[in-house]
Structure formats: structure tokens, C-alpha cells
């Protein structure tokens, strides 16, 4: 069994109804984070330092119109330092992503805002909000151009290969079921991770909410990232994207 499923199985959800990834849709994921350890006694009475998983955010992807490649994305992440603390800070991305309906959903244009917000009160800490950060970018040929923020000059970078994103891959993989390919990913629509490959990793049968569920996987891996695998169920839903320290687990998927 793929080692991904040793940590996150309790967070996977089973979906029975059909879903058409080529129509307009709304997807809602929880972000599960594996962090901190807890000593837990196992069945044989031995204390094991056990990684702890908990929800530390959400990702919603809205594809309002099946006719074009546009996604509305909202990603919220919140966390605290230790498991027994309440979350102290929340980060919010809101974005519009325009992409080509090709194998990897290569990016055309995007706009985003990023805000960091204190959640008060938490222990003895005090916090300050930062002003929202607005960013926009586009791809022209092999050039990625990001628009200036608060009057800064535009910034241009040369791409090695086609540029994709987590969000457009989530839309594309169920439709295309791609063969192995090279790409780079703009992580959080800001951090370039070049030199990556997307590759099929076969199928697994996993117990999801008591049901044996067939999942087909595609791994995204390469330099400057922990491998992540997109898992597609028999009903054309990406039900999880699982990395080593975090996972996006599907909560709802509806055609609209």
C-alpha cells in the first residue's frame, strides 16, 4: 500500500454520487496537517511517539463556467505552535486563475490577494495584521510576468517548462488523466518550483469510511518540494492530494 495511507485514512471521505469534472463545479477540501508528536500507548502497551494530524485550513475551488478555464480559489490556513493551543493566526488567499485547458492546466493569468490576520486572544501573544498583498501575473510564451505590488515594477522571469498550479491540476487530472510529463508549479501562485514531473503511480484500494475504494494516483515530485500525490476515485473526484506533512482531503464536490 502506498505509504500515504498510513496517516490520513480517517480524513478521507467516500462519495457515491457521480461527478462530471468537465462541467461547472464547486470543490471543498480540508487541509490536514501532520505536525507535532504525542506519546500514545499502542495495543501491546508500548509508548509510541505518534505523529498527530489535525485540520489547519481549507481550500475551495469554484469553476463557474465549463466553457473556459477559470477558477475562483479561496484558501484559508490557520495554526498554532503546539497541538494543545488554539490557532493564533489565519492566512487567506483569494485568487482568480485563468489557465489553458491543456494536459497540465498551464497558467495564463492570475490575480490574488493575501492577508494575514490575527486571531485574538491567544495565550499571552499580541499580533498585528499586515496590509493585504495584491499580486497579479501572466504567462507570455516562456515568460512569467508578475505585476508590481504597491507601485513596484513588474517582474519578469523565464520559465523552463509550462507553468501550472495546484488548482488547475486538480481540475485537469480527472479530465485528462495525463501521462508522465515535465512541468513547473507556481506554489501559492507565488513560489516557482521548476523541474518537476507529474507521473501516474498506479492504483490502490483503500478503506474509505468502511468502503473499499479504488484510487488512481499521480505523483508530483522533483526539486524543492515534498512529493505530493493526487488520488482520483472511480467517480472522477480528486478525493485527496497527499504530501508528507499535509494533505488536502475532499469534503464536498458538486456540479453546479
Amino acid at each position: 500500500m502506498n505509504p500515504h495511507f498510513d496517516l490520513y485514512p480517517n480524513y478521507l471521505r467516500s462519495f457515491e454520487t457521480s461527478f462530471d469534472p468537465q462541467k461547472a463545479f464547486k470543490l471543498q477540501f480540508d487541509i490536514q496537517a501532520m505536525r507535532s508528536y504525542k506519546m500514545i500507548k499502542n495495543d501491546s502497551g508500548k509508548w509510541i511517539n505518534t505523529p498527530q494530524v489535525r485540520k489547519e485550513g481549507s481550500l475551495s475551488i469554484h469553476r463557474p463556467d465549463a466553457a473556459n478555464g477559470v477558477l475562483k480559489v479561496e484558501q484559508r490556513r490557520f495554526w498554532s505552535t503546539w497541538l494543545d493551543q488554539e490557532p493564533a493566526t489565519e492566512q487567506i488567499f483569494k485568487a482568480l486563475v485563468s489557465y489553458n485547458q491543456d494536459t497540465i492546466g498551464s497558467l495564463k493569468q492570475w490575480e490574488m490577494t493575501y492577508t494575514t490576520t490575527p486571531i485574538l486572544p491567544v495565550k499571552s501573544f499580541k499580533f498585528n495584521a499586515l496590509a493585504p498583498l495584491r499580486k497579479a501575473g501572466r504567462v507570455e510564451g516562456n515568460r512569467m510576468i508578475t505585476e508590481g505590488v504597491n507601485g513596484a515594477l513588474p517582474h519578469e522571469q523565464i520559465l523552463d517548462t509550462s507553468l501550472s498550479s495546484l488548482y488547475s491540476l486538480i481540475e485537469r487530472i480527472p479530465v485528462i488523466r495525463p501521462e508522465r510529463c515535465q512541468l513547473e508549479v507556481l506554489d501559492d501562485l507565488t513560489m516557482r518550483r521548476p523541474g518537476l514531473s507529474l507521473r501516474p503511480v498506479g492504483t490502490e484500494t483503500v478503506d474509505v469510511e468502511g468502503q473499499a475504494t479504488n484510487l488512481q494516483g499521480w505523483a508530483l515530485l522533483g526539486p524543492a518540494m515534498m512529493p505530493m500525490t493526487f488520488w482520483l476515485d472511480d467517480h472522477n473526484r480528486i478525493i485527496a492530494i497527499i504530501g508528507r506533512n499535509l494533505a488536502y482531503t475532499l469534503v464536498s464536490a458538486t456540479n453546479i
Binding site: 501532520m34 489547519e56 505552535t81 493564533a88 493566526t89 490575527p118 499580533f127 495584521a129 513560489m191
Partner: peptide, 23 residues
């Protein structure tokens, strides 16, 4: 100024640290 102080995994926290510096 302390826009955020906690430390989650770097895998999903370091991007935000970099963006917060930009902000």
C-alpha cells in the same frame, strides 16, 4: 510588529512568511 509568530511545518508556512515579509 508581529504579523504571525507561530511555526507550523515549513512546507506550508514558509511561503506565508515570505509573503508576509513582502506585505
Amino acid at each position: 510588529l508581529i504579523p504571525h509568530n507561530t511555526h507550523p511545518q515549513g512546507e506550508y508556512g514558509d511561503n506565508l512568511t515570505a509573503l508576509s515579509f513582502e506585505s
